[in-house]
Lab assay of single mutants.
Amino acid sequence: HNLTITQGKLFFHYNPKLCLSEIHKMEEVSGTKGRQERNDIALKTNGDQASCENELLKFSYIRTSFDKILLRWEPYWPPDFRDLLGFMLFYKEAPYQNVTEFDGQDACGSNSWTVVDIDPPLRSNDPKSQNHPGWLMRGLKPWTQYAIFVKTLVTFSDERRTYGAKSDIIYVQTDATNPSVPLDPISVSNSSSQIILKWKPPSDPNGNITHYLVFWERQAEDSELFELDYCLKGLKLPSRTWSPPFESEDSQKHNQSEYEDSAGECCSCPKTDSQILKELEESSFRKTFEDYLHNVVFVPRKTSSGTGAEDPRPSRKRRSLGDVGNVTVAVPTVAAFPNTSSTSVPTSPEEHRPFEKVVNKESLVISGLRHFTGYRIELQACNQDTPEERCSVAAYVSARTMPEAKADDIVGPVTHEIFENNVVHLMWQEPKEPNGLIVLYEVSYRRYGDEELHLCVSRKHFALERGCRLRGLSPGNYSVRIRATSLAGNGSWTEPTYFYVTDYLDVPSNIA
């Protein structure tokens, strides 16, 4: 807008934040220059609390790290170098490059900038070799853009010569660093050979998330399962459950009422301010606690030095998902009996873990797994792929695949051998790939016309006998059925096997 004052003059007093240069501009645009008398524009009460600059400061050096910015700028000295009290560095987070010096300023003089007072450097006698002032900004957020400017702080001049310097606002972004852990990993099994893994992005990506790394490792069953005799009275049979499938998407929606109208769909109840505040506090606490764990609990591995020492970490090797089922080394339970199943799973520490690289999504279907087997899954978020990966501390989750139908069934015939004193040795093959492992066998036998009897055969007993022995049988026709019990439950009964026990007292003698 054009402003013209045809008559009258300007009068400025007691404006401590208004620089004289701005008042002189007002004289020019209003056409009143030359009308004012000496005392109409006070030299001592206008701009006496402001830094009124008329020179431009330029930054000469900028260096960044993930949490620091090192700045240096060209030296500046007023005509009387004693008038320079120091520099004021202003900075704040700036997602967009549209910041002005006066953003967030209120009537009390406060604003949204963080201000650092910096002492002037030592003055050199040689004007050509003056030290460049600077400042190291610490405690910054990774991968965050900051708006920065600097200006001088000078003393009051009796001659009211307006001098000083100020830089333009520059924008500097800190470097990326390792992201925080992925949030809320959930693993479920939808079949006997697959596990579905879902997660949420890290709360602090500290860069642009480029991919996720998912490692999985087959877990050995508890050692007590191999040692305890679950045929003993009072000892509860062990059981394991597989990871249940995901709930429906509708039930997972946030901010939804727990109660549904019987007449149909209901609208979600909005969260109160107290609920939102509580969630923010919980989120802040979780982030602080995660940072504490990362800094205190997890110790970084030592990389190899120039002395030739090897990095103890196993090298990563990509495998196809079809090879995942046989990740671990199978060892027989008892070496003397080769027909026992290889369900003991000690994992070799030198073995390469299978892994998958996930790009542009937060889910993965891990296939080719062994049925009813526990897996430990390790999830890392990465925001750099080359020249070397920059990934987060791992988040861990466990899951067990679903049982395989008929995996616990005894394959092959049940054979028998009759000894003296009416002892019958029953023999059968253990299931080759049971659900988890076989903890015991149930032997059901009966003599024709009598009630059915049951015998429990422990895992250890089966390994020693290759089956079991029935003792003290009365003469007669017998039928026997056997079924295995694994961590997933009972298998199917075998087809009945028949044998006849004679009275050993009636056996004919070869003595003449």
Results as ranks from 00 to 15, higher is better:
350 E>T: 10
246 F>D: 08
339 N>Q: 10
368 G>Y: 04
218 R>F: 03
394 A>S: 07
475 P>S: 08
480 V>S: 02
331 V>N: 10
297 V>M: 09
208 N>Y: 12
439 V>C: 07
475 P>R: 07
320 S>L: 11
504 Y>N: 04
247 E>M: 10
390 R>A: 04
367 S>T: 07
267 C>S: 10
380 Q>I: 14
355 F>H: 12
276 I>C: 03
490 N>M: 05
309 A>L: 12
320 S>I: 11
265 E>A: 14
484 A>H: 00
291 D>F: 10
483 R>G: 01
328 T>K: 11
411 V>S: 14
349 P>T: 10
205 P>D: 15
352 H>S: 06
441 Y>A: 01
415 T>V: 14
323 D>T: 14
300 P>G: 09
239 S>M: 09
357 K>G: 04
233 K>S: 11
288 T>I: 15
501 V>M: 05
284 S>M: 15
307 T>P: 13
273 D>M: 10
229 D>L: 07
243 S>C: 05
286 R>G: 03
499 F>C: 03
431 P>I: 00
497 T>Q: 15
484 A>I: 03
502 T>L: 13
388 E>L: 07
269 C>A: 08
308 G>H: 07
347 T>I: 13
319 R>M: 09
335 A>E: 13
496 P>G: 01
226 F>L: 09
460 K>D: 05
329 V>G: 13
394 A>C: 10
254 H>S: 15
486 S>I: 00
390 R>W: 06
458 S>C: 14
308 G>P: 14
383 N>A: 09
338 P>L: 10
372 F>Q: 03
209 I>W: 03
387 P>F: 12
446 R>P: 00
376 R>A: 05
477 N>A: 06
242 W>T: 07
465 E>K: 05
231 C>A: 02
400 R>C: 06
421 N>I: 05
479 S>C: 03
429 Q>E: 15
250 D>L: 14
291 D>K: 05
453 L>V: 08
379 L>Y: 04
333 T>F: 11
287 K>R: 07
335 A>I: 14
332 P>F: 15
414 V>L: 08
264 G>R: 12
206 N>K: 07
490 N>A: 04
435 N>T: 00
320 S>W: 06
325 G>D: 15
251 S>P: 15
495 E>K: 10
394 A>F: 09
500 Y>W: 13
399 A>P: 06
416 H>D: 01
204 D>P: 03
455 L>E: 15
206 N>H: 10
444 S>V: 15
438 I>H: 02
386 T>A: 08
456 C>W: 00
474 S>G: 06
304 S>Y: 07
308 G>E: 08
320 S>D: 09
203 S>A: 14
438 I>P: 02
457 V>G: 00
352 H>N: 04
244 P>D: 13
353 R>M: 08
342 S>V: 15
418 I>T: 12
215 F>Q: 11
298 F>G: 05
470 L>D: 01
461 H>G: 10
354 P>C: 13
239 S>Y: 13
433 E>C: 13
303 T>V: 06
391 C>T: 02
304 S>Q: 13
380 Q>E: 11
207 G>W: 02
294 H>S: 03
368 G>S: 09
369 L>R: 02
507 V>T: 13
317 K>A: 11
462 F>P: 01
409 D>L: 13
303 T>R: 10
480 V>I: 14
303 T>S: 08
407 A>C: 01
392 S>G: 01
362 E>N: 07
263 A>T: 07
344 S>W: 13
415 T>N: 03
452 E>N: 03
313 R>W: 13
296 V>L: 06
438 I>F: 02
473 L>S: 01
208 N>A: 05
369 L>F: 04
342 S>H: 14
412 G>T: 06
435 N>P: 01
480 V>C: 15
229 D>Q: 07
443 V>F: 01
368 G>R: 09
453 L>S: 06
220 A>L: 11
251 S>Y: 06
380 Q>P: 00
387 P>W: 12
430 E>F: 08
490 N>K: 04
440 L>K: 05
312 P>K: 06
362 E>T: 11
406 K>Q: 13
270 P>G: 01
381 A>K: 05
291 D>L: 10
354 P>F: 08
250 D>E: 12
400 R>F: 12
488 A>F: 07
474 S>A: 09
482 I>H: 01
245 P>F: 15
315 S>C: 10
227 E>T: 07
262 S>G: 10
447 R>G: 03
407 A>H: 13
417 E>H: 03
471 R>D: 06
504 Y>Q: 13
232 L>Y: 10
217 E>N: 15
425 H>N: 14
457 V>F: 06
432 K>F: 09
417 E>Q: 13
456 C>E: 03
365 V>H: 04
359 V>K: 12
285 F>N: 04
420 E>Y: 13
299 V>W: 02
457 V>C: 13
407 A>L: 10
431 P>G: 04
273 D>A: 14
